[in-house]
Amino acid sequence: MSEKFTVEVVTPKGVLLQKEVEEVVAPGVLGEFGVLIGHTPMLTFIKPGVLSYLENDRFTKFVVGTGFCEVLRDSVTVLVDEAYSAEEIDSAKAAQEVSDLERDLEGIDSATDPEQYEKTSTRLKVARAKVVLKSGISA
C-alpha cells in the first residue's frame, strides 16, 4: 500500500471532499493525469469530466466542472465551479439533461453568440460526464 496524501475538492458552495487518498486521477486540459504522493508541484486547468481517487484500493468518482487544480508534494486541491458525487447524480435526470442541452446547442449559432454557445457546451460536457460516471458504476 502506498503512502497517502490529502485531496480537496472545493466549489463556491463549499468543500465537497477532503480525504486522505492514495491516488487521484483528474481531467486536465492537456489530458487526464494521475497524481501520487511526491508529485512535482503543478498548476493546471481542469476541464469538465470525471475525477476519481483511490482509497483502500477502491476508486471513487466525482463529476467536476471547469476550474483548476493545484498539486503540491503532499496535497491536491481542485477548485472547480461545480462538482457532484456519484450519489448526488440521478441517471435519468442526467440523460434528460444531455438531450435537452444537445437540442439547445443545435439552436445556438456559435458565430453570432459565441458566449452562449460556450456556456451551453460546458454544461453539456458536465452532463455527459454525469452520464458516463453513472453508466460506469452500474456496469
Binding site: 463556491p12 486540459v29 508541484p41 503543478m42 498548476l43 493546471t44 486547468f45 476550474g67
Partner: peptide, 26 residues
C-alpha cells in the same frame, strides 16, 4: 513552491483572473 505550469503561466493567469473577479463579486 516552484510549480510546473500546464499550460503556460500566461495562459493560466488568463483563465484564472476572470474567475477571481467572479469570486469577488460572488
Amino acid at each position: 513552491t516552484e510549480y510546473l505550469y500546464e499550460p503556460s503561466e500566461e495562459e493560466l493567469l488568463e483563465g484564472i483572473l476572470p474567475r477571481y473577479v467572479q469570486v469577488q463579486v460572488f
